[in-house]
Simulated scan of single mutants.
Amino acid sequence: MSAMAEAPDDLVRAVEATLFAAEAPMTAEAISAHLNGIAVAAALDELQTHYASRGIHLVERGGRWHFETASDLAQLLRREREEVRRLSRAATEVLAIVAYHEPVSRAEIEAIRGVQTAKGTLDVLMEAGWVRVAGRREVPGRPVIYATTPDFLAHFGLASLRELPGVDEMRAAGLLDPVDDDMIQMVITGESGRAADGDPD
């Protein structure tokens, strides 16, 4: 048995140091492999509890662990010059459809939206790191299918896609105006009410 396995406090410190030094969020398996195969689940739980009331939190997003600023302090750390990623309405719709229906093909996205989807729309989402090619559908023509990425979950503060809100939740939070309400209903149910008149980028 290694000295680290005999000293739980050392393991917690080692996991903490590994996550602080990591360039990207890490799975528990990757952390364990970095520490010579030692089980790290208990150490991650202990660290998450330790940081729960501090200025940074240890969070799991899409099976990957990383430290992030506590949400009530985020405004203190904003840079004077911020890079804002603005999505077109078309890109927002496509991203929502991928998130709620993944894995999904371009044809399925277009069937839900009721309009053609410009290739550039999916390119923008993939360049942002929020959508990825997830393989091909095993049907004639074998169309490419798309899914969200761990970066999508991290950016929107989701542990998994199960945390995506429904229409009733968004309406109750006052996040929908009548136009958005119709669009989100279309996205979640997969029912299109729009004529095929092109992609409104």
Rank of each mutant, 00 (worst) to 15 (best):
V124T: 14
P103A: 09
Q48E: 13
E110W: 11
G135P: 08
E6S: 12
T49F: 07
L35Y: 00
L76H: 11
F20H: 13
G198V: 08
L125P: 03
I109N: 00
G129Q: 09
L176K: 05
A111G: 05
D181M: 13
E163T: 06
A111Q: 15
R54N: 04
E163K: 05
G55S: 12
A28V: 00
G190R: 09
G129M: 11
I31M: 09
R132Y: 02
I56N: 00
L164H: 07
A172I: 02
S2T: 08
E46K: 08
E127W: 02
V187F: 14
A196Q: 11
P8Y: 04
E191Q: 14
F20M: 08
F20C: 08
L125T: 04
A21T: 11
A52L: 09
R85G: 02
G198N: 07
P103I: 09
P103R: 05
A17Q: 13
I184Y: 09
V167I: 14
A118P: 00
A21H: 13
V59D: 00
G157S: 10
Y100C: 04
V144G: 03
R85L: 12
F156Y: 15
L122S: 13
L158E: 01
I145P: 02
V144N: 10
A24D: 05
A91R: 01
R78L: 15
L125Q: 08
M4Y: 03
W130L: 10
T18F: 00
E102G: 02
V131G: 02
A5Q: 12
I38G: 01
A43E: 05
E127N: 12
D182C: 03
R86W: 14
M1D: 09
R79F: 08
V98L: 02
R54H: 11
V167H: 15
E83S: 12
I184C: 03
S71V: 13
A21L: 14
P143G: 03
A173C: 02
S32M: 04
E138S: 12
E110R: 10
E163C: 03
L19Y: 05
M126Y: 04
R86P: 04
G193P: 00
T92R: 12
I31H: 03
G198Y: 07
L73T: 04
A147Y: 06
G55D: 15
T149C: 05
I97T: 06
D9W: 00
A196W: 15
F152M: 07
L44V: 03
K119C: 00
A39C: 02
S71Q: 12
R64I: 03
I112S: 06
G114W: 03
G193F: 11
A30S: 14
R89T: 12
L44H: 00
R61V: 04
P143I: 05
W65M: 03
L35Q: 01
E169T: 15
L77S: 07
R86A: 14
D197S: 11
R137G: 04
E102C: 00
T27V: 04
G193C: 06
F156R: 01
F152R: 09
V139R: 12
S192V: 14
L73N: 05
A43Y: 04
R106M: 13
L73I: 05
Q185A: 10
R142W: 07
V98H: 01
D168L: 06
D181V: 01
E102D: 06
